[in-house]
Design a protein around this nucleic acid. Structure first.
Length: 418
RNA sequence: GCGAACGUAGCUCAGUAGGUAGAGCAGCGGAUUGUGGUUCCGCAUGUCGCGGGUUCAAGCCCCGUCGUUCGCCCCA
């Protein structure tokens, strides 16, 4: 597997280095997210990047693509157990909540998180093997208000970022019971027309029938026209729950699209599911999504704990920000660039720079003994607000001129030197 | 996992009858030896992703490989 003939080692497939001019955009995104989280009263949680494999395999669903073929799993050294790089954040957060009894007495918990996740997939635009998500979870609330809170939290983040061009798709899957009955009816209907279905959908019929609803195949779509509809199988409570969620969104000015085919890829969802999509992205157009998952705590031996959460795909948000708000990706400027005329004043310049930094002024000096002109050019290029030139004269007189780079004006000063 | 395209200087890319690589930008130096952004002049740069093959000769053709991109699948 090792390709020794390749001289230049590159980052592994589907991973990337985020270089300085990118990082400023990520920092902006992280700041906006944590500020909005604070406004909603959510607290940050950080969980390990790898977990025991069962944390994911049990909860996400053995038949999902994520578990069946996308996990980075490995045997821990000298141990008998298998570990897995997290393919998503929710399962780990719930595991932590159970382990530390965060929800044992039924109290509400509002948590947010941010970090990298890993899935073995074919990379393409907006899809990476190491990708980043930020998201939030609310435990011990079964109310439609809690669903709405999470959706509006996510929507507010997008708004604050300046991403107004998104579509909020929303759907309800009902309770596990409703869904089971529906899946039965759907399978029964589709079994009869199995030969007419696309190959992919024939496989899905046994593995994950709900996904057929989402098929892009024309033939499948035609067959689905007369298929049973999930909403006919919803209980009264499920319907009421969903209606309430929608009315809260409306009352707060959030428009949405009910998308019956929205079923989401992970097995643990019930009731409300939602997804934000953007036309500014390619075929991987989901910016984020989430939903309600009421039974996950029980998988970890916890009490029944109704929960709802969402996560946003940071890589994809960054892609859009680069497109529509390039000004975010400008590096911060420096207060002062001190130019050393020659090697002999190098030390003095360092001392001066340190004194200024101790006074909370950002200072850059040239470390390559370059010419005055080169240093001037660099000061200008990086957008230094002021420039100070230090040579023999300045050291003798203990005075120097501070040049304002914007208007070219100079002021005589004598602090920090000598 | 399937189908398709692409991979040339730090960056964007040209190189279309196969004959030992070019432009713009960025970089560095200079235009009366202590002051930037414009302009002008000069300099440097690449194992043409990697490996193999065909050929007298390959950046251009063939095979493999790695990577990127697009679609499918799936998902954030």
């Amino acid at each position: 597997m090792e390709n020794t003939s390749q001289k230049n080692i590159q980052s592994p497939r589907g991973t990337r280095d985020l270089l300085p001019d990118q990082i400023v955009g990520w920092q902006f995104l992280e700041k906006v997210f944590s500020e909005v989280a604070q406004r909603f009263g959510y607290q940050e949680i950080r969980t390990p990047i790898f977990e025991h494999t069962e944390v994911f395999s049990r909860v996400i669903g053995e038949n999902t693509d994520v578990v069946s073929k996308e996990m980075y799993s490995f045997q821990d050294k000298g141990e008998k157990y298998s570990l897995t790089l997290r393919p998503e954040m929710t399962a780990g957060a719930v595991r932590a909540a159970v382990q530390h009894n965060l929800t044992a007495t039924g109290q509400l918990q509002r948590l947010w998180y941010i970090g990298p996740q890993f899935r073995y997939e074919r990379p393409q635009a907006g899809r990476f093997r190491q990708f980043y998500q930020c998201g939030a979870e609310c435990y011990n609330a079964s109310s439609p208000e809690s669903d709405a809170e999470l959706i509006m939290f996510a929507a507010m983040v997008l708004q604050e970022l300046g991403l107004s061009q998104y579509t909020l798709h929303i759907n309800t899957l009902g309770t596990a019971g409703c869904r089971e009955q529906y899946v039965q009816a759907l399978v029964q209907y589709l079994e009869e027309k199995k030969e007419l279905l696309s190959h992919d959908s024939q496989v899905r019929l046994t593995k994950n029938p709900l996904r057929i609803l989402d098929s892009k195949d024309r033939g499948d779509k035609a067959i689905l026209k007369d298929a049973p509809i999930l909403s006919d199988y919803l209980s009264e409570e499920s319907k009421q729950h969903f209606t309430k969620v929608l009315s809260i969104l409306e009352a707060n000015g959030y428009s949405y699209t009910i998308t019956q085919s929205l079923v989401r890829g992970l097995d643990y969802y019930s009731h409300t599911v939602f997804e934000f999509t953007s036309s500014d992205l390619g075929s991987q157009d989901a910016l984020g999504g989430g939903g309600r998952y009421d039974s996950m705590f029980e998988y970890f031996g916890g009490k029944h704990t109704p929960s709802v959460g969402f996560s946003l795909g940071m890589d994809r948000i960054i892609m859009i920000l680069q497109k529509i708000r390039p000004e975010i990706f400008t590096l911060p400027t420096i207060d002062c660039y001190i130019i050393a005329m020659d090697k002999t004043v190098g030390e003095v310049v360092q001392t001066m720079a340190m004194k200024m930094r101790q006074n909370n002024i950002s200072v850059i000096t040239d470390l390559q003994y370059r010419s005055l002109k080169a240093q001037m050019r660099e000061a200008n290029k990086i957008g230094a607000k002021t420039v100070i030139v230090i040579g023999e004269e300045e050291i003798k007189s203990k005075q120097y001129k501070v040049k304002n780079m914007e208007d070219g004006s100079e002021t005589l000063r004598s602090e920090f030197i000598g």
